[in-house]
Nucleic acid binder design. Structure first.
Lengths: 347, 347
DNA sequence: TTGTACGCGTTATCAG
DNA sequence: CTGATAACGCGTACAA
């Protein structure tokens, strides 16, 4: 292991000079700069990041905390796409990513505290936000650079990036209503997730606006995504007055729903229309292709990382203002809802 | 920021004693243990991981190096599934994951060197292996705990975990031949990837064994996965003597191929059979469901992480033996090749 | 422009 | 069982 001292000795200068060369200090003579660089070459020197971080009190890394529903989370294409956005900016800004998963709510808390106090990261990116999230408590107690992907349940002074999920739910439902549907089902993901609740909220808004009464039997939630969508659709189709359209609050749910409908011999969109959320790659590949609300996951990831790094860099300064950003949302119309054509409403 | 000294003062002991309590040193009186624990509570103390790592010369973290084809890599369901396996064991073993992406081959090298010498991680997991990989050079020069997911092109003394991809390719092709196919196409991913080459190799073996002549026109490679599969299939179907079956070396390629066939009005499996690799979740959901070689990605990730951590822990000791492990492979027969078992769940 | 000396927060060694 | 003291490798006032 070659250290800064070895280089110093080799170059005939002091360790501090080497340090300055490494960090591109301005006032250093070209000559010694060359000498030091040469010595570094010859010795194959690489600075010890740990020691540097300890001295500078900055880790040059951000933490990404994957929520306790780890397994489901990994399975959803949402995750890699978000991570892609995040890594795009961390790479550009010179930060590393520390990935932490946890099995339970308690572990979530511990992981977060370890990250915050362990000084291994300069800030943390929180993925997903749920009701009564114990993490929020931790954040309340310890001010620390954090960005939430989603929104906090209660008004908390923390930075977050989110979609306007209420509006997204509204738009999707509105689309179906516009196509003439009156009985519209709602397939939700984990009910504790705020995304689910917000999209459901939007669904209700659209229904109310159109004067369509809501029917509890038309709503079904499950945290098992594809499977949940499958089961939910089965249930909806079993109703005596089955829906002619379904809003699935996640593309995976929608795929499960489509699978169920297909197996029962219902045609999409002729017999039942489906709309999803997230607009994952698969939407265009499925048959029929899935109409979905694009929430721009990649953008979401980039924004979140950027906002976090901003905080990290301006910490301590006056600018302690928290920021909230809403990433726009966009309905992408494909074939799963049919066009303005004739729809068969036969039950 | 409360340090070990603060706790020491509060508890009326020396810093070293606190350190011992933290690390559960055996010979410490119950009494002082309680005092120290109390002080830690009251002060909300959390050890500084950086300082600890610096002193202990071990980072309690492993690096995961995502290859230069970052974007494609994130898009493939292979990635999150592998990561899930990795994180499963790192969590259990108390290691954190440092994710590093890079844009180019050069950056790959630098990232690796930074990780190795920067001491921020104790070992590195290399995902994917390609021809003439510059990373191998780095590994040759610096002995360091590394595990490769895949296999090195040349015989290098490094630990790796892989599938028997040659056999996998052989099995898939053999399956098609068994169903009576004689003209079988091959859709490959990035040609520089050893996976691609190995699976192609297996394809050739099966063909040779059956006495079927190979035809260059039946092989098409592209690193753009779904799109590549689409284009490749288009090309294959345009041939005067088109294939009746296709081996696609990745499920995504297979989906693209199926989409192309569908758009042109070919039925699967009646008109053309398709088999893929990886057995991603989507295989069962697609229509028709995709016959695919399960390579047990999750297992692959777990094994890789485990082997790496083993190395990390036994480094310096005599046991410097590198290990190679082959994760078994298994053809999962569904509907995209026909012939197989008749499944009845149609309405 | 460069060197000295000290601090960053812990752990390990060696006394006691 | 516990307490000094010296690393760990690097950054940075302060002085020269």
């Amino acid at each position: 292991m070659t250290t800064i001292k070895d280089v110093a000795a080799r170059a005939g200068v002091s360790p501090s000079t080497v340090s300055r060369v490494v960090s591109n200090h301005p006032r250093i003579s070209e000559k010694t700069k060359r000498q030091v660089r040469l010595a570094m070459e010859e010795l194959g020197y690489h600075p010890n990041v740990l020691a540097r971080s300890l001295a500078k009190k900055s880790a040059e890394a951000i933490g990404v905390l994957i929520p306790s529903t780890t397994e489901e989370f990994f399975l959803n294409p949402f995750f890699p796409e978000l991570l892609r956005g995040i890594s795009e900016v961390t790479k550009r800004e010179g930060y590393d990513i520390l990935l932490t998963t946890s099995g339970s709510g308690r572990e979530d808390q511990q992981s977060l505290e370890r990250m915050i106090h362990g000084k291994r990261v300069d800030g943390v990116l929180l993925l997903s936000s749920r009701m009564h999230d114990p993490l929020m408590q931790v954040l309340k107690e310890h001010p620390f650079p954090v960005t939430l992907v989603g929104r906090p349940e209660i008004d908390l002074p923390i930075t977050w990036v989110n979609n306007d999920n209420i509006d997204a739910g509204y738009q999707a439902t509105r689309h179906l209503i516009g196509l003439g549907h009156q009985r519209i089902g709602f397939l939700g993901g984990d009910e504790a997730l705020l995304v689910t609740r917000d999209r459901l909220h939007g669904y209700h808004l659209a229904l109310d606006e159109a004067g369509i009464p809501t029917d509890r039997r038309l709503m079904f939630s499950s945290s098992f995504m594809e499977q949940g969508g499958y089961m939910g659709m089965m249930r909806l189709l079993a109703l005596p007055d089955r829906p002619t359209a379904v809003v699935a609050s996640d593309d995976l749910l929608a795929f499960g729903a489509m699978r169920a409908a297909g197996e029962l011999g219902y045609r999409i969109p002729e017999d039942i229309a489906v709309v999803g959320f997230n607009n994952v790659k698969l939407c265009e590949m499925s048959n029929p292709s899935l109409t979905s609300v694009d929430v721009h996951i990649y953008e979401l990831g980039k924004k979140a990382a950027l906002l976090l790094i901003d905080q990290v860099r301006n910490t301590g300064e006056g600018a302690h203002a928290v920021t909230h950003e809403l990433v726009r949302t966009q309905l992408v119309i494909r074939h799963s809802c049919g066009g303005g054509k004739t729809l068969s409403y036969a039950p």
